[in-house]
């Protein structure tokens, strides 16, 4: 898995031990945690055990996303299945000024490009809480299609809310990406 990948003005760098406390603070912030399947408070000890579990685990990869020389969020691929060509992506952006404009698309695109172009995957899938309308719109704009089937999940939700299941095929992604990527002029 690459430790460094750059596109759309964004660089993703493999999550390191020195990132852990920053990422834990982001992840525990209410504005990020409210959209997570597991909304438990994460202690430093829990975070370290989770990080140690990533070593030698080829089915999971986490990166810090950098924009304009600043770490702004986390992107991930879990349940990576090379033989089936599938994975479950995840992302969040912490600074408020980068959440509601073109930057989330830049971050999603670099992750999707990495999954499809570098890893050679053919299908990404995920779940969104039904009340997260912005995320639903965002994923549909990126080419995701709602499906009924239940894919395996890397974590079970501890939140009593309904989930929508989405899938992204490579061709749908590239058709959706290009009309937006034309605005990324770095």
């Amino acid at each position: 898995m690459s430790t460094y990948f750059q596109r759309y003005g964004v660089t993703i760098k493999t999550l390191t031990e020195s990132d852990l406390e920053m990422v834990r603070n982001w992840r525990n912030s209410p504005e990020i945690a409210q959209h997570m399947l597991d909304q438990s408070y994460i202690t430093a000890d829990m975070q370290r055990k989770w990080f140690n579990g990533l070593v030698n685990d080829n089915s999971r990869a986490y990166w810090v996303a950098w924009f304009k020389g600043e770490p702004i969020g986390v992107v991930s691929l879990v349940n990576i299945n090379r033989s089936e060509g599938t994975a479950e992506p995840g992302m969040y952006i912490y600074p408020q000024q980068y959440r509601n404009n073109i930057v989330p698309f830049c971050v999603a695109f670099i992750l999707n490009d990495y999954a499809f172009d570098e890893l050679g995957l053919s299908l990404l899938y995920g779940k969104i809480f039904t009340d997260n309308e912005a995320s639903v719109r965002f994923h549909e704009k990126c080419g995701y299609v709602q499906v009924n089937e239940r894919k395996p999940s890397h974590e079970m939700t501890n939140v009593p809310k309904q989930l929508l299941h989405y899938e992204l095929k490579e061709a749908n992604y590239k058709s959706a990406r290009d009309p937006i990527a034309r605005f990324i002029r770095y």
Partner: peptide, 23 residues
């Protein structure tokens, strides 16, 4: 006004005013 609407807005502004906005 979420990220999706923002990009729809940008496309509309570029079209209506015939400009190419810096990122």
């Amino acid at each position: 006004w979420d990220s999706t609407a923002h990009m729809i807005l940008i496309a509309e502004l570029e079209d209506v005013f015939d400009v190419m906005l810096d990122t």
